[in-house]
Amino acid sequence: MFYYLAQADITSSFSIVALANQLLNGISIVGILLLTGLGLAITFGVMRIINLAHGEFIMLGAYVTFLLQSTFNLDLLLTIPFSFLITATIGALVEVSIIRRLYGRPLETLLATWGLSIVLQGVIKLIFTAQLKYVKAPAYISGNLTFLADAEGSPMIAISYYRLFIVFIALVLLALTSYLLYNTDLGRQVRAVTQNRDMAKCLGVNTSLVDMITFAYGCGLAGVAGTVISSLKSVSPPMGQDYLVDAWMTVVTGGVDKLIGVLAGAFLIGESNAGIAYLLNDPVARVIVLAAVIVLIRYKPEGLFTIQKRS
């Protein structure tokens, strides 16, 4: 939830300072939304799979990092490839064993992935117990980028480097994913399968393999998101639930036609949340943003940033 993600309050007498801080806070929320929404933009946006277990793949990524850090004392950045590979593998298994049986039945998929999310939480709880775990952020990405400091030198308008790092990683992954999707053979096949499965099959595309790879990639991205986010707060079995609704709202707001919609959705939700939170308070901001998204789905279920098509 947003108010968990919010940076520690930097109280200030100047409202303009508070506003600037709130907007910077918004930037860090945007980073998290973008990162958590990206995987969903693949599984839902490209494949149209209603994946309610998305939050649990984020959670799995965080646990991979925790495990590697506590046993091998590995740097957080070095655990990223492992958490990508492991969550992607689990994603591939899930696709083959569950999702594949339910293509074309969106409500059943929704239910099955919801069941899967309960199972994954239960299994992780069984292995690691429900206790909160903590992950260390790398020491070289610490401290704040200060825009304005007061007379004693303590920061008044600032954002932590780690939050900027999250935005950076999210943008890099977005660029990489766009490249894969729009400029490679595999990406072309993925889009072909989404647009016309039968025709793609006729032209010799191995559709079931493409499905598996695409879903696994989306889950892998969720795993990376989990790794990067893990050091912000504690790691626990139900942590994915906090990100699930937000990730969904991001993807639905941005629209699923173009990958870049995720960026727009994340920016819109993150900043408006921060703005309203500045005027009112965090829970009210969340309620208002959720209500706004409901209204948006009602009038433009295809999202804000899609080109009108004739169906």
Partner: peptide, 25 residues
């Protein structure tokens, strides 16, 4: 509206989530 079934389910999820936050606050 012409909103399809899956989106309605997502809306019900959002309603539940929003009201929980609201009642707690």
């Amino acid at each position: 509206s012409k909103v399809s079934g899956v989106y309605i389910t997502i809306i019900t999820l959002a309603i539940s989530s929003a009201l929980t936050t609201f009642f707690i606050s």
